[in-house]
Design a binder for these strands. Structure first.
Lengths: 116, 116, 116, 116
DNA sequence: GTGGTCTAGACCACT
DNA sequence: GTGGTCTAGACCACC
């Protein structure tokens, strides 16, 4: 068993921004705060903040216009896709955790359907 | 948003042992490894290892016999209770995460059905 | 016959604090001295002092606010419960000691009722 | 508050022997084990064992016949007195402890009645 | 051998 | 400043 696997800060911030997209707190086309502002908001290094936007861009969830700023994808489908992916991961994780408890596939199925 | 959240080692080890109890890897009445062995197994200090067993004992999941060793509860009900509690926590967490994504019950239901 | 029986320091300090709660020297909601001060007051290690507060918290006789301090329970019922428990233990111990002297249950009953 | 007041071994042994006298386990005139045997029985130093008998003799609870051994007082009154004294001390201690808790006579009375 | 207690001293997160 | 955690190493009582 591994102790303490520290999740990298940039991944944590990415996850936070994704949550805001999926939950509707952010909308397609929204302008994101500058890298500098982001670094201050989260109390992280500007390089780390920059990495956050780079990563999001790689996933086609945002794009950058030199000299203007960073903007969220303008396509609502990207938001829908993200939401769906995150939901699937939550469910998948719950299923896996329950399986590790020794619950059968059938038990897990029933439990999730009743409780979620 | 809060970053990181370093989970104390002793809680991580506790969780690991609990998983082994819930999943059936451990059985009621099993003798646990000695405090010193546990500390070596997980690469932690004997004091920390001792704390692990103390906390488990506080939750009535194990008991100790001075000079002999530490043993898991002999009552299967304690195991059943643990399993139930852990399952509930998994469900609770998933439900909370999904709610934060803004998914309706209907959407969740559909997702679950699709995954089958 | 067993000799001595070294009572752990942390239990002795706990007992001292409990006495102060039960006797009214402490009041519900009172702020307790810091872990470090307690360690100095009793000439014990900060870790041991910390254990004292932890145990008291486990018994719901106090609670802690991170970065602020440790406070006695704000519910007078907890104090009343403690007082009652301590009184019962005193009586129980006296009864047991008298029984060991060879006094009958009836003799003990009369003696306690007349003398206490 | 004082920590850890270690009760001297010889006092503990004396108390043990007195208990046996008061409870009837020992009878007036009984021959006590030799100093050497006593030291072995309790795992203590022969000098300490000797001190035990000296102290008991000082309280006129036993006497020594050179070359023969140590014997308990032959007068039942001494036993009765001891029993009374020990009972009184138990009562006195309980009363003092209860007083320190701030219990009124009325509260004590109620407690005693409840325990029956 | 076992667990229980204690000290010394360090680092952390939170206010 | 607060309490929480962790390590290192010691001594004890029990079996």
């Amino acid at each position: 068993m591994k102790l303490d696997k520290n999740i990298p800060i940039y991944l944590q911030v990415i996850d936070d921004l994704k949550s805001k997209m999926a939950s509707g707190e952010f909308s397609p086309g929204d302008k994101l705060v500058s890298v500098r502002e982001l670094s201050i908001e989260y109390g992280i290094n500007p390089n780390t903040a920059s990495r956050v936007y780079n990563e999001l861009e790689r996933e086609e969830l945002c794009f950058t216009r030199r000299g203007i700023g960073t903007f969220l994808s303008e396509d609502p489908k990207d938001f829908a896709r993200l939401k769906r992916e995150m939901a699937e991961e939550i469910i998948s994780r719950a299923r896996s955790d329950l399986a590790q408890l020794g619950l059968s596939r059938e038990e897990i199925k029933i439990l999730l359907e009743e409780e979620l």
